[in-house]
Amino acid sequence: MTVNSIGEYPVLPRDVVDNFHGNIFVVLGWDKHMMISSPMAFPLPPDMPFGALVQEVMPAAFGPHPEWGEIDWATVEWTLDGEPFTPDMEKSLADNGIGHKSVIRLRTPGLDGIAGVGI
């Protein structure tokens, strides 16, 4: 479907990657940990190693959650843009296949959130 308009309607996407000064827009979500009330977004250099994302970026969003320190990273289940995925901690975000507006989600089996109900 397209928009009805008088004259041509210009397509002016505001959030194309070129507008982010070399960064890409990356979304991080921790499933079933609703104390953090929504997924969080970050402008990140695509050559940032995935390990740095985990160690430096994620704590800013998820660190306040009481279970953050208890994560067993060997058992984390990752998805990238809806597909299961195994990140390489040494490789860059780009080399891990992470693009502009990608969504990275982590699931932490055994950690069920505050009160065990996904908070």
Binding site: V3, I6, G7, Y9, P10, L12
Partner: peptide, 8 residues
């Protein structure tokens, strides 16, 4: 959004 009635 741009107005559909005057998109410019």
């Amino acid at each position: 959004y741009r107005p559909t009635w005057e998109p410019d």
